[in-house]
Design a binder for these strands. Structure first.
Length: 505
RNA sequence: GCCGCGUUGGUCAAGGGGUUAAGACGCCUCCCUUUCACGGAGGAAUCACGGGUUCGAAUCCCGUACGUGGUACCA
């Protein structure tokens, strides 16, 4: 029995992108590997950024990826609630405790005053002044106000926040599972707001309180959080004790063509960044996801796993179980990685080839149906998928690669044939259809044998005739071996397609 | 600006004092295939730069440059 507890704590403000899913994956792998618990906590403390449906969307994405949490709002354990907005009262208590201990203070500065401060103290050498140990004594807070005035402001219900009082000069360091020893000088860290004027905690307070209360043992998050780690470490020290603090791992960032990949990037690079389709309810902006783009979840998480991690061998294709066995945080790369869509597609292609078609035929059928094709014979369908899967990089490619098995190609690549078309060939095909009529045991072999014998008889190279036949049956220069296709579409359909095509050449 | 983190081919990356500096994606050539793919064989990096340390450095140390993240009552 392990007591490892990890957590993924997204804020439900939009689509779930690559980096988020990878963070989930690493959490999940670590939890499974240590027979631990994977918790999903919703960080919805910013009420101004609430987005309808975003929470459910996150669950849907995790379900699709096969990375479902052990504890969450949908599956409560003993550490709920799992939604921070429902834990509001808890945080105030800890914030007050910090004030009482002298580690934090009340600040009454209005947004306008803060803005004024930033303008007034802005210099060339300090373009973005912080609310820190150097200026907090020039602001309106319980450090600068007489005690009784602070009390009266408080009792009057004056809007205020609680800020951490960063030590003047203290070296704050910790050992990160990926980066090793990291240290900061407290004098350059600002007095972060812990409790907002609306009574909600900021991420800084909430993450520490919740990790402590939810008994999190290992905390994994993106590297963008590294800079605020000193605040969190101090909070742990003041509130719960450093010995209880989880081990941190700051994951390298996944970069897009221009910097950190973010939710706002949507699909503007020509490839998806979200796990699944997402429509922003605020502006109806639609963003295509990896799922709908035609990715297999197996490929998606595989690709994500090795974007920043490898096991030291040459293996690249991993099942979830293999990843659980082999994953280790100390083999996670330190530097950020630029996402390569071409490689992502390669992973998908590999998984399409590797997996039995039963694993994805439903999804393909869905695509085919949307294209107006109805599947009647399931066994035949599977046979077809098996035949064309090597040619499909995305699940959506099956539409192009398999449609002609079910319906006569709408368009024929006439140009591919026309240049070398002549009466001799035309006569060959007319004769061929006549012979096909008499085949009783319709199969790849018989169809091909008749074809070759007739070609020999007419003294035409079979190779000269194969492309035309392909165009007749498929419509274009692609697909499995022609006779295989003829076998599958059947006698009548084969003959009919040849006859129809002849008229068009 | 300040602080943190990072830096091996176009991209993902192995390698952590002595190697011909793995492998994969993509690209190119060829083979297979009288379609397209699959598959197979090849081609293209001296490890950001400058100093050290050492018999010896991609590997250790220090600078510089560059990249990236943070610098919000957002997460």
């Amino acid at each position: 029995m392990s007591n490892v507890r990890v957590r993924f704590a997204p804020s439900p403000t939009g689509g779930l992108h690559l980096g988020g899913v990878r963070t989930v994956l690493y959490n999940y792998l670590f939890a499974r590997q240590h027979a631990g618990t994977f918790v999903l906590r919703i960080e919805d403390t910013d009420q101004t950024r609430f987005v309808e449906g975003a929470e459910q969307y996150i669950f849907d994405c995790l379900k699709w990826c096969g990375l479902e949490p052990d504890e969450s709002i949908q599956k409560p354990g003993e550490y709920g609630p799992y939604r921070q907005s429902e834990r509001k009262e808890i945080y105030r208590k800890y914030a007050e405790e910090l004030v009482a201990k002298g580690y934090a203070y009340y600040a009454f500065d209005t947004p306008e005053e803060l803005e004024k401060m930033r303008v007034d103290f802005k210099t060339e050498s300090n373009p973005s002044p912080q609310y820190d140990n150097k200026i907090r004594l020039k602001m309106k807070n319980s450090l600068t106000l007489p005690k009784n005035e602070t009390e009266s402001l408080l009792s009057m219900g004056t809007r205020h926040v609680i800020r951490i009082k960063m030590p003047e000069q203290e070296n704050i360091s910790f050992t990160d599972m990926i980066h090793g020893d990291v240290s900061f000088d407290s004098s350059v860290v600002d007095d972060k707001v812990l409790l907002k004027a609306d009574g909600m905690p900021t991420y800084h307070l909430a993450v520490v309180v919740d990790d402590a209360l939810m008994k999190i043992t290992h905390a994994f998050r993106g590297e963008e959080w590294l800079s605020s780690a000193p605040v969190h470490i101090l909070l742990w020290k003041y509130l719960f004790g450093l010995d209880k603090m989880p081990q941190w791992a700051h994951l390298p960032l996944i970069m897009g063509p221009s910097g950190k990949l973010s939710k706002r990037d949507g699909a503007k690079y020509g490839f998806p960044v979200f796990a699944m389709n997402w429509t922003d309810p605020r502006n109806n902006e639609f963003t295509e996801g990896f799922k709908e783009k035609g990715f297999l979840p197996e490929a998606f998480i595989n690709m994500l796993a090795v974007l920043g991690w490898n096991d030291g061998t040459e293996q690249e294709i991993y099942t979830l179980d293999e990843m659980i066995k082999k994953f280790s945080m100390d083999r996670v790369h330190k530097a950020g990685a630029k996402f390569d869509y071409e490689k992502a597609k390669w992973f998908n292609h590999e998984w399409i080839k590797k997996l039995d078609v039963k694993n994805y035929k439903l999804k393909v059928e869905e695509n085919l149906t949307a294209a107006g094709i109805t599947i009647n014979d399931d066994a035949q369908f599977e046979k077809i998928l098996e035949l064309v899967k090597d040619r499909c990089t995305l699940l959506t490619d099956f539409v192009q690669q398999a449609s002609f098995f079910f319906s006569t190609p709408a368009q024929l690549d006439v140009d591919a044939v026309k240049a070398k078309w002549n009466d001799e060939k035309k006569n060959f095909f007319i004769a061929y259809t006549e012979k096909l009529q008499f085949i009783s045991n319709w199969s790849l072999i018989t169809v091909e044998t008749v074809f070759k014998e007739l070609a020999a008889e007419k003294n035409i190279k079979p190779g000269e005739l194969q492309l035309p036949l392909r165009i007749m049956l498929v419509g274009g220069k692609f697909g499995p071996p022609v006779f295989q296709i003829a076998e599958l579409i059947g006698k009548d359909e084969t003959i009919q397609r040849i006859e129809n095509a002849i008229k068009k050449f």
